[in-house]
């Protein structure tokens, strides 16, 4: 049952990624990889969240997986890695948190009620910091493979076993 729920979530992550891929007008040949990458990245994040890890760390891990997967797919489908990676990480954007932060900001601008103001302030700042750090880890995770291989173009990156 647990596994079924997880698979269902993966499916939704994949569909959301494909939706954005179509919105960004990606080549048709890259749609299937985007689905797979979106689903795997999202599942990584969900599983890590269920293990009660921090939401920022989980998102970073999901985005890193997407970043690494984008390199072999880029070789296979002859398209630059960002084309796969950007639509695939967008389902991980923290929409609800951003929405709560916005609501909080509006409440903060309203009348000051000394009893609840402190609580609203701390919740808003908490949500806002999470949103910011999650967005940064999304972008950072996608860039990790390029950063650690120190190559200018993904075409030069080869993940192959070293010959003995």
């Amino acid at each position: 049952m647990e596994l079924l729920l997880l698979l269902e979530k993966g499916l939704w992550f994949g569909i959301a990624a494909v939706g954005f891929a179509v919105l960004f007008n990606v080549p048709v040949r890259t749609l299937a990889p985007v689905f797979i990458m979106g689903a795997l990245g999202g599942l990584t994040k969900t599983i890590m969240l269920q293990l009660e890890l921090n939401v920022i760390v989980s998102t970073l891990a999901g985005a890193t997986i997407v970043g690494f997967l984008s390199i072999p797919f880029a070789h296979k489908k002859h398209a630059p890695p960002p084309i796969f990676a950007i639509p695939a990480v967008i389902p991980m954007v923290p929409g609800i948190l951003a929405y709560r932060m916005m609501l909080g900001l509006i409440n903060l601008a309203g009348e000051v009620n000394p009893e609840t103001y402190q609580q609203i302030l701390s919740e808003t700042v908490n949500n806002g910091m999470k949103v910011m750090l999650i967005l940064m880890s999304l972008a950072g995770g996608v860039g990790v493979p390029m950063l650690i291989t120190r190559k200018e173009s993904a075409k030069e990156i080869r993940f192959k076993k070293r010959s003995r």
Binding site: G19, F20, L23, F24, P82, I86, P87, V89, I90, V93, G95, I96, Y99, R100, L135, M136, L138, A139, G140, V142, G143, L147
Partner: peptide, 25 residues
């Protein structure tokens, strides 16, 4: 509440934000 909050997510500026970060690093 979820429906209301997630209905606008197709507008999020994913490309500018991710490009912004990759430009900065």
């Amino acid at each position: 509440e979820h429906a209301f909050a997630t209905s606008v997510l197709f507008l999020i500026p994913g490309v500018p934000l991710i490009n912004s970060f990759s430009d900065m690093i």
